[in-house]
Computed example of a mutant assay.
Amino acid sequence: MNTVQCLLRQATVGPGTDDLLGLLDPAERARAAGLRHAVSRAEFVLGRATARLLVAEGWGPAPSTITFRAVCRTCAGPHGRLEVATPDGVVHVSVSHSAGRVAVAAALGVRCGVDVEKIALRGAKPPVTALSTVERAVFDAVPPAGRTAAFVRYWTRKEAVLKATGDGLTVAPATLTVSGPTEPPRVLSWTDRPAPELPVHLSDVDAGEGFLGALATLEVPHTVIG
């Protein structure tokens, strides 16, 4: 079976992040200026700058000439999964960030989704309503000390898939069942799966100490470069 090369780059917010503003287009700079939270603003700037540099590295256009297009699958608004036209064809781009960590994936002609998450909870308990019945049974058998990491592993796999399909959180994560945290990543089932009915290929990625990540592509299996 043919595979697609999916370029992956990761970066961490740091003192030089503001220097990357010049790589963004006017609309992106305006969006960054509107973000009140300093970390969120830095993550956005770093994500878009890294995306431009990655596309330039892989397919040749100068970063300053790259214009990303985003059309929401649900409402057709100017947000959602990114893509950019290059001389080689359309490159699909996915950006994720968590706690100052940014991951960007890009693939030529194949839709992709990446997710990176810090191994931590935003509340007192894991939001287990995001898990399917099958996943919940596996999760409940995990010793308490390992449950945060187990939930984050589930979440990154699900989020990567939902980003690749363009559904995002308009689709309830519990309708999607992925393999258990200690098993090789794959989609097991999807209840009431929205169109298009395309095969989904899933892998875990090394997101650095204290983080977990996952990458998904539609139709075509991938090899990760980076």
Rank of each mutant, 00 (worst) to 15 (best):
C72G: 09
A214C: 09
A149L: 12
A145M: 00
K118Y: 06
R147D: 04
L23Q: 02
A164K: 08
G16C: 01
V39P: 00
T177W: 07
V171W: 02
L176R: 08
T17I: 02
T74F: 11
A105I: 06
V95F: 05
T217V: 03
T12D: 08
L53C: 08
R52H: 04
G89Q: 09
R122W: 05
A160R: 00
S40E: 11
V95L: 15
R9W: 11
G113Q: 07
V116E: 10
R29K: 03
G146K: 07
C75Y: 10
Q5R: 11
P144A: 14
G58V: 11
S94A: 12
A85L: 08
R193A: 15
A32C: 08
A38N: 03
V4D: 01
D19A: 15
K163N: 06
A51D: 07
V142Y: 05
K118M: 14
K118C: 14
T148C: 11
P63R: 04
A76R: 13
A32P: 04
V187N: 09
P221S: 01
A27V: 07
L53N: 02
V39D: 14
L176P: 02
L82H: 12
P63Y: 08
A106R: 04
A195D: 15
Q5F: 00
L35T: 00
A99W: 11
Y154F: 15
